[in-house]
Amino acid sequence: MNRCPGLVDAGRRRFLSGAGLATAGAAVATVLPAEAKTPPSLALVKYPASRLANVKDLKVNAPLEVAYPDANAPGVLLKLGSRVPGGAGPDGDIVGFTTLCPHKGFPLAYVATDKTLNCPGHYSRFDCEKGGQQIWGQATQNLPQYALRVDDKGDIYAEGVDELIYGRLSNVL
């Protein structure tokens, strides 16, 4: 897998430098105990490793609909035809993204002519060749991309997502 290790590390450092993004326990109604420092739990959730497809299932620039981390989280696998950041597989050109727009959750449509995902809701555009960077739009995050692994048999596994998916407060429900 040809993944940018620097970015993953940067994200982890950023997280660890702050307080926890998930705290333990449900809310206590009214009376609060005196402040105490409790170690934060992890913001990163435990992702399943899910087989999404085999390399043979993919044609260059033809989107394959998938779902990850579960059946209610629609996504897409793409073989872009040239090596890209975050690209997996023997040619480093296989990428996967959620297809729920991170702005308001509308389904994104793939435009093969310029390899972008476009939102019919409010015109946001994401570049599949640039790690899902929002070219222009309303979302306050770039498009959640899958961490992909391709094994010896050519099976493509998703093992994580790098941003929060629309419509869920935990990527793994």
Binding site: L44, P85, K130, Q134, L164, V172
Partner: peptide, 18 residues
Amino acid sequence: MAYKRQIGQLPIIPANAT
């Protein structure tokens, strides 16, 4: 590569939030 926050979950707003 594009900036990503690496955030996979957020704290849930409790019913008694201000």
